[in-house]
Structure formats: structure tokens, C-alpha cells
């Protein structure tokens, strides 16, 4: 039974992370760019990042559920490719803000829009690096008993409560004050 599932891969220097490295709260999201719930969680996470700016580090990892979300894998690879150019969070935001259109041509358009180099992103994707990273994230998610998207881990333990703003914020406050 996985009542308190643990994050199998600790947060490390290779992660896409935003917020202080020594924060008291580390929130890891396993997410899928095409998943509507992740889309719904996106502005909530943004708000929490603002609220807990000094005390929370946020990490995003890929868990594309390709069988239900046909564009999820391609979107994740694009995000990783743009990440190689140092613009991960820009493309991450662009993908969630434009979740309704993740077609191949739209993805390239977002790459351009965030000021990344389309040719080099396309080449990196063709070389397979981003795919390997997405697959590694994916396997880490399965190993951690992520049970759908989004799955959040707070300080290494799966958070099974509601990720709607109020309950999530209250939970984080309690952990912080705990």
C-alpha cells in the first residue's frame, strides 16, 4: 500500500527548479502539459509560488500520459529541448497558458515566442536527449507511485490532499510552521 509514497528520485541539480535552494518547502509536481487538471493546477501553483516566495522551491518533472493525451509527450520534449537553452520556465508557462493548442506547429511557435532557437531545439529533439529525460522522469514517477496527473510531493512525500488553492496553501503553511 502506498499511503505515504515517497519520491524515489531526490531533487537534484539537474531538476528544473525555481525558488531558494535551501527552502523549507520543496514541492515537486509530476505533470502533463495536456492534462486539464494540470492546467487547472498551473495558476494555483503560480499563486503558491508567490505566497511562499521565500520559503518554497518548486520543481517540475514530466509525467506525460500519452495514451490519453496524444500531444503530451511532444510538448514535454519541446519543454526539455527549450530547457537546454536555459528557458525552461518560459516554455513551461507558455505551454500551460496555451494548453488548448499543443499541435506540432503550435509547439514550434511557442518555442519561437519565448525567444529560444527553433532549429537547435528541433535538432536536440531529433537527437533524442529530451526524450530520454522525459522517459527518465516518467519512470521516476512510476517508482514514486505517482497516481495520475498532477501528482505533488511535498518534502519528498506524496501529497494526497486536494491541490485546490485553499487546502493546498493551508497544508503548506502547516508544514512550514510544523
Amino acid at each position: 500500500m502506498s499511503e505515504r509514497a515517497q519520491l524515489s528520485i531526490p531533487v537534484g541539480p539537474d531538476d528544473h527548479s525555481i525558488g531558494p535552494l535551501d527552502a523549507k518547502l520543496t514541492v515537486v509536481e509530476y505533470g502533463d502539459y495536456q492534462c486539464p487538471y494540470c492546467g487547472q493546477a498551473y495558476p494555483i501553483v503560480e499563486q503558491l509560488r508567490t505566497d511562499f516566495a521565500d520559503s518554497m522551491r518548486f520543481v517540475f518533472r514530466n509525467l506525460p500520459l500519452a495514451n490519453v493525451h496524444p500531444h503530451a509527450e511532444a510538448a514535454a520534449e519541446v519543454a526539455e529541448a527549450v530547457g537546454l537553452q536555459g528557458k525552461f520556465w518560459e516554455i513551461h508557462d507558455a505551454l500551460y497558458e496555451n494548453q488548448h493548442d499543443l499541435s506540432a506547429s503550435a509547439l514550434l511557435h511557442y518555442v519561437e515566442e519565448v525567444g529560444a532557437d527553433v532549429n537547435s531545439a528541433t535538432k536536440d529533439i531529433a537527437d533524442g536527449g529530451p526524450r530520454q529525460r522525459v522517459e527518465a522522469d516518467f519512470e521516476g514517477a512510476i517508482r514514486s507511485d505517482a497516481n495520475g496527473t498532477p501528482t505533488f510531493f511535498v518534502n519528498g512525500v506524496r501529497y494526497d490532499g486536494s491541490w485546490l488553492y485553499e487546502p493546498f496553501s493551508e497544508f503548506l503553511t502547516n508544514v512550514l510552521e510544523g
Binding site: M1, S2, A5, I142, R143, S144, D145, A146, N147, G148
Partner: peptide, 16 residues
Amino acid sequence: SEVSPVGVNPGADGAL
């Protein structure tokens, strides 16, 4: 084997 509460998604890690 593992039996989970009906409302809980067991995840795939244990079986894997």
C-alpha cells in the same frame, strides 16, 4: 498481491 481502498489509486510501483 495488494488490495487498495476502492477510492485510492494504488500506483504501479509495487507491481513493477
